[in-house]
Write a protein that binds this DNA or RNA. Sequence first.
DNA 1: CGGTGTGAAGTTGTTCACAGCT
DNA 2: AGCTGTGAACAACTTCACACCG
Lengths: 242, 242
Amino acid sequence: MIRRTHHARDRGIPDATVARLPLYLRALNALAERGTLTVSSEELAAAAGVNSAKVRKDLSHLGSYGTRGVGYDVQYLIYQISRELGLTQDWAVAIVGVGNLGRALANYGGFVSRGFRIAALFDADPAVVGERIAGLVVEHVDALESVIKDRGISIVVIATPASAAQDVCDRVIAAGVTSILNFAPVVLAVPPEVNVRKVDLSIELQILAFHEQRKANGGPIMADQWPDEVGHVRERSMGAGS
Amino acid sequence: MIRRTHHARDRGIPDATVARLPLYLRALNALAERGTLTVSSEELAAAAGVNSAKVRKDLSHLGSYGTRGVGYDVQYLIYQISRELGLTQDWAVAIVGVGNLGRALANYGGFVSRGFRIAALFDADPAVVGERIAGLVVEHVDALESVIKDRGISIVVIATPASAAQDVCDRVIAAGVTSILNFAPVVLAVPPEVNVRKVDLSIELQILAFHEQRKANGGPIMADQWPDEVGHVRERSMGAGS
DNA sequence: CGGTGTGAAGTTGTTCACAGCT
DNA sequence: AGCTGTGAACAACTTCACACCG
């Protein structure tokens, strides 16, 4: 299936490590701004909220960029991580779906700050098309394919309603996009070479609720029954043949 | 012994499983709406985008709710997962920071749909305080503590600028909140009994960029040097030896 | 038969602890 | 002395494969 094992060159960076590199990068940028020149794994770990052994192992996957007895050169490490993440080039990003969330994303400074440039906004609603947001004119989603090709867009953010997401997804993939950030609450079906990351607000809340509930009722086992009026019995209800 | 599974009884559901339950729940709701009565692990797996063995193992952590040879009763499973996640009660949620993102969250229907009720909006900007959004009047952040207590708010969403996030975090924790969903791009420092989940838009993009870059340059090793000359000559290999 | 529930094997990620470099 | 880099132990998660049941 999805195996990312090419006979390991230096380039076999574990997913878990990749997910933490942006965190280190942010911490390093903060340190750099304060004029810090070098940082130990211990300090970087504290700033990123992880364990120091993890920092050292993560960074060792990029190469030996530290100095024993001293630590890591902040600027050098920023450069190496940026390069590894591909942030030394800039990426043209399109946002599809300019509702509340799409607008928030378009106006979100954090995107632009590193390597990412929002190059197009799309919506299907004629009332929204033509509107100017964050310096861009919203285009009709009909133009998706041509704009993606013309502007070299390589990452697409889907911020449409759930019902439109799969269709948009299919179209951008057909247009050659292989990296998608999906905010719609659906599981997108994509071919294996396409990379999808998902951000789902309500799932995050549900996970919090789980832990909150567990904290609340110290552990007693709750009644394992339906509310009475439902009157459900396990063995039934599937009797009907097709 | 920093063991997450402290004195838990048989209800020790793995984190990875908890994170997938909302996914199953959504898939099951979709099935229920189409009138489906039972579902096999294979079908549910397809709908949730995971492997079927994973579905069975995940569900087995909740109890034996399937029927061999048949599958799972959709309604019954919806109820059990909802109960496990704590969605049979409803949770009062506050959003702090009513910028673009905060507004989008306040208006996002997905929250309200299951168990979550947005009970307060806060901002520090006097120009925003008093504004009516999604049926709620934005309150000044000064009222944070009292409103949290009065309305029984148990989950707080932080959608402030990075600079304000830690302060807001400290205050809501002091007011008794132990579940936080953080959208600000900072690592929040919290005591161990507090649960923080983080959603970071720019980190997701950076992870995508990493994979996109790797796809682009099939595998050749790139120049491993500073643009200028920093003179770090790479000298690797000879790793093990002990 | 068809499909769940689950030991066991396999994989990935985390943490420890220390050798070895600066 | 101090701190990195890393084998090795450990822990978590995933997948397999099959006994068992309806």
